[in-house]
Design a protein around this nucleic acid. Structure first.
Lengths: 345, 345
DNA sequence: CCTACCCATGACATGGCTGTCAAGATTGCG
DNA sequence: CGCAATCTTGACAGCCATGTCATGGGTAGG
């Protein structure tokens, strides 16, 4: 093992060390590192072996000071669901690693008063030199933020944006179609009395899911209204929603919760009230998050490739060529587990 | 609103702009920014108002190139539990913000073969210029990593380390005592037949919990062995463990799962087998994570201030003066909810 | 009133890399 | 074989802060 590093106790070797060892100029080393054109094979080889020998790693700070890139991507989130966020983060992180980028995270708190929240957000974005942001819902649809980013010319991509598709590249699934597939599954099982548990209003994707589900049911021939209750995308909200639904006159035979957390809450409310899932009522979630397999019975839900979405969003950001605006659609699919079954006659 | 920023389309004003506007030297601005001594009140005021007017924010890259600090903290994790990790992350993030630092995350994958895993880890740590790392379990107890960090003189603090307390500052709760409090709770309820669900072997804190629980029970007078099963700290592991326990000759009346995820798995296994919680068996978890309130009945568990631990670990790292090595203990407490009750008969 | 010293301030070099431009080497073609 | 065009390489300035050291004014003590 070579302890590498010359002189000055920094412990790091610099580009100059590499240049010297390889017997070439500073700039040539730079060219090799950045894979610039016009470098002879021979020179490249010399430099590369010198780099390897010295265990050289370019200094990010110096690179970003001199150049125009920072080699940092910011992940901006304000998401109450740790599972979802963690998955996104993982995907974004991997894309960063693969491109020698670093991932910085920035967390905003949307429970703060709107005014304070906006100040927080803008300060964050303004101060933070980075090559771009990945936005997660519901920030993806925050017009103040989007306007600011667009005006400042700061690049960004969005994960599962529900509106403003023309403004930036985004990745996501088709929430409308996905929810329609839930409707079809439940309809095929024979259900005819439905309830839906909605997400928070700020979360536009939730609205898309609601529409996809309800529209599909009516298209399939449902002739009565779907009971609609708010569940706030949380377990607790799900419990409340579940309790409300169970207490209603005509207990539906199938409940679609527009995310897994609230579906878990529904199931808890059922178990509390002695209503059996799926014998008495079928429950379906959305996300196929970690919770879906942390409840009993395992939850029927819509799988969306969350980690992959993170990866894709970061990759779009990292491409040197400007990617096309608009939503890049990824595949979803229904995962049928144990929480849905035919209604008892 | 002042659009700030002078000249060159960078959109950012530099220290020079500030110096000019304030009519002082570059260095004086630097002094104000870094709160260095020997600055007159008058000068400081001038500079500060210029900073405000220009909306100036120091360039991190330049600062770290010129100075010795990077203004970045790295959070290194390899943790299967999204809830736990997310909480830590939040705490660390807040401490960073409060100190004008940025948080970079680095995620390693311990499911990779050990050799590859180590290479990954060391490359990460070596390449990444930052002012220090916050380590989460089980990385906190990885001797190869610790040795490398110590040798390289890279600063770090650890969250919930289970060993090697002398090597660096760490924060955590007393897992041994915390588990003893679980034992006392269950004993006081009248339970006399116990099972414990252990964590993965690599997770030394899990072992501490096991010891604290078992020792306390014997001290309280338990005269028979505690059934011990592995649960791997995961929901699935909990299901397996639960199934195994339920299938055993003498069903215990109380089960202590050493984290919440496996406790949730236990409860799922119970519900699956028709064993009621808490009537037939009491279940207790550990962590008071998000899952504890995502199961029904709500889980009795040990609260540990995870977010606070993150904050504390980062703060220790950020202090200019070298903090004392050793474990800084934070408070825990038992949260009694609905999954524990006196045994029948 | 002078020396000694401290405080406030500034000038300037420096950090590691990239961008620009120019020079030398090579190639192509009439 | 000569000249233009192209490819390869290098010299050097500059990015924006910080660290070091020098300077000038003020205060204290003799």
């Amino acid at each position: 093992m070579n302890l590498a590093s010359t002189a000055r106790g920094t412990g790091h070797s610099t580009m100059e060390d590499v240049a010297q060892l390889a017997g070439v100029s500073l700039k040539s080393v730079s060219r090799v590192i950045n894979a610039e054109p016009h470098v002879s094979v021979k020179l490249r080889a010399k430099v590369e072996s010198a780099i390897a020998e010295l265990n050289y790693v370019p200094d990010t700070a110096a690179r970003s000071l001199a150049g125009s890139r920072t080699f940092i991507i910011g992940l901006l989130f304000d998401n109450p669901s740790p599972n979802y966020t963690m998955n996104i983060q993982k995907g974004v992180y991997e894309a960063c690693r693969a491109n020698q980028y670093h991932l910085r995270i920035d967390n905003v708190d949307s429970t703060a008063p709107r005014e304070e929240f906006e100040a927080q957000l803008l300060a964050l974005v303004r101060n933070s030199r980075c090559d771009g942001f990945v936005l997660t819902p519901p920030l993806t649809d925050d017009l103040v933020l989007l306007d600011f980013l667009d005006q400042s010319g700061i690049r960004y991509t969005r994960i599962a944006p529900a509106s403003e598709h023309g403004r930036s590249p985004g990745v996501g699934i088709d929430d409308y179609e996905a929810s329609a597939s839930v409707a079809e599954h439940l309809w095929a099982l024979g259900h005819r009395r439905y309830a839906i548990v909605r997400g928070p209003e700020s979360h536009l994707a939730g609205a898309r899911r609601r529409d996809g589900f309800v529209d599909a049911l009516h298209k399939l021939g449902l002739d009565q209204p779907v009971i609609e209750v708010d569940g706030g995308f949380s377990f607790e909200g799900g419990i409340h929603a579940g309790t409300e639904i169970i207490g209603s006159d005509k207990l539906p035979t199938a409940i679609f919760a527009t995310n897994d957390d609230s579906a878990a809450g529904i199931m808890a409310a059922c178990s509390q009230a002695g209503v059996r899932v799926p014998q008495d009522v079928s429950v379906c979630g959305f996300d196929d998050s970690w919770v879906a397999r942390s409840v009993w019975p395992y939850l029927t839900t819509v799988y969306q490739p969350i980690e992959e979405m993170g990866r894709a969003a970061a990759s779009l950001l990292l491409r040197r060529d400007e990617p096309e605006n608009g939503l890049h659609r990824l595949d979803f699919h229904l995962v049928v587990r144990d929480s849905t079954a035919p209604p008892r006659s």
